[in-house]
C-alpha cells in the first residue's frame, strides 16, 4: 500500500457524505456531521435539504458554521423558523428523513451519551447535555452517527442514555413504541458500520483503505463484530477531497477574519 494522500478524518467525512442523497431532508448536528452534509451538498447531492436546529431550513452555507446558529446558516437558508416550530412541525411532524449526530460516548447499539461521565448526580465530567438529540434520535426517519474512534468514546456501557439508539438491541425500539428506524449507519475514521438486522449490534461492513481489523478493535471498547463479506471503502475521489479541503480552508479564513478584531490586546469582550 502506498502512502495515502488523505487523513483518516477526511476519509470519515467523505464516507459519511456519500450516504446522503439529494432527496434527503437532513437534521444536521454540529461538527463532523455538518462537514459531511455540506460536502454531500457540494458534490453528489446538490438538492439535499439541510436543517439546523436553530430553525434554518434548506440552508447552504459557504463556510462551515461554528455553532448551530451562525448567521451564515440563516442568510443562505430558504426560510428560518422559530425553534418551537422547528421541533414541533418539522422534526416531530415527521418531515426529517435523516438525523445526523455526533457522540461523546457511544455503545454497540447506537445509544449516545452527551450528558455526563460518571454518576448523573455526582458527575466526573459534566458534558453539555442532549440539546436536540433525544428527539432527533427518535423522530427522524433514521439516524446516521459519525465520530472518530477511541476507547473513551466507543464504550462497552455508556454512563447515561442521552439519546436512545437500539437500547439493549433487538426490537427494543418497537417495545417502547418508537416507530422510526433509529441508527442505521455509523461512520468512523476507520470503518463503516451497520446494525445487524436481528441483534441491532453495530457490525463493521467496510474498512477504509489501509485500515486493519486490529486497528478497529484497538480503538473500540467493545469486542468488534465484522461482517462475513468485509468491503473496502473506496478512497476519496479528487473532487471529494478538493471540495472538503476548500470548504475547510474557506471556513478557517472566514472565522479567522471575524476573530481578528476581538483578539486585539486589552479588549473588554463580554
Amino acid at each position: 500500500m502506498t502512502r495515502q494522500d488523505f487523513t483518516p478524518n477526511e476519509m470519515m467525512t467523505i464516507a459519511a457524505s456519500r450516504a446522503l442523497t439529494s432527496e434527503d431532508v437532513c437534521f444536521v448536528g454540529i461538527g463532523a456531521p455538518s462537514a459531511a452534509c455540506n460536502v454531500a451538498r457540494l458534490t453528489h447531492a446538490p438538492d439535499i435539504t439541510l436543517i439546523y436546529e436553530s430553525g434554518t431550513i434548506g440552508t447552504a452555507p459557504d463556510v462551515l458554521p461554528l455553532s448551530i446558529g451562525d448567521g451564515e446558516l440563516c442568510e443562505t437558508a430558504l426560510t428560518t423558523v422559530s425553534v418551537p416550530e422547528m421541533f414541533r412541525y418539522w422534526l416531530q411532524g415527521g418531515r426529517v428523513s435523516i438525523g445526523f449526530l455526533g457522540a461523546a460516548q457511544l455503545d454497540r447499539f447506537g445509544n449516545i451519551n452527551t450528558t455526563v461521565v460518571g454518576d448523573y448526580d455526582k458527575p466526573k465530567v459534566r458534558l453539555p447535555g442532549g440539546g436536540g438529540a433525544p428527539e432527533i434520535a427518535t423522530s427522524s426517519g433514521q439516524v446516521y452517527i459519525t465520530m472518530a474512534q477511541s476507547k473513551r468514546g466507543m464504550v462497552e456501557k455508556i454512563d447515561f442514555y442521552t439519546s436512545f439508539g437500539h437500547g439493549d438491541g433487538g426490537n427494543h425500539r418497537q417495545r417502547l413504541g418508537i416507530d422510526t428506524k433509529g441508527p442505521t449507519l455509523l461512520i468512523t475514521d476507520l470503518a463503516i458500520w451497520q446494525p445487524d438486522p436481528e441483534t441491532k449490534e453495530f457490525t463493521v461492513v467496510s474498512l477504509h483503505p489501509g485500515v486493519t481489523r486490529e486497528q478497529v478493535q484497538e480503538t473500540c471498547g467493545w469486542t468488534v463484530k465484522f461482517a462475513d463479506r468485509l468491503e473496502e471503502t473506496p478512497p476519496p475521489t479528487p473532487l471529494e477531497l478538493s471540495t472538503l479541503r476548500d470548504l475547510k480552508a474557506r471556513t478557517e479564513r472566514a472565522h479567522k477574519g471575524a476573530e481578528a478584531p476581538g483578539a486585539r490586546k486589552g479588549s473588554k469582550d463580554g
Binding site: 414541533r88 416531530q92 450528558t115 428527539e135 434520535a137 427518535t138 436512545f164 425500539r173 418508537i178
Partner: peptide
Amino acid sequence: FRGYRGAELARV
C-alpha cells in the same frame, strides 16, 4: 409532545 422516548433524563 412526542419526546424523551428511551431517554434517561426522564429518570433523573
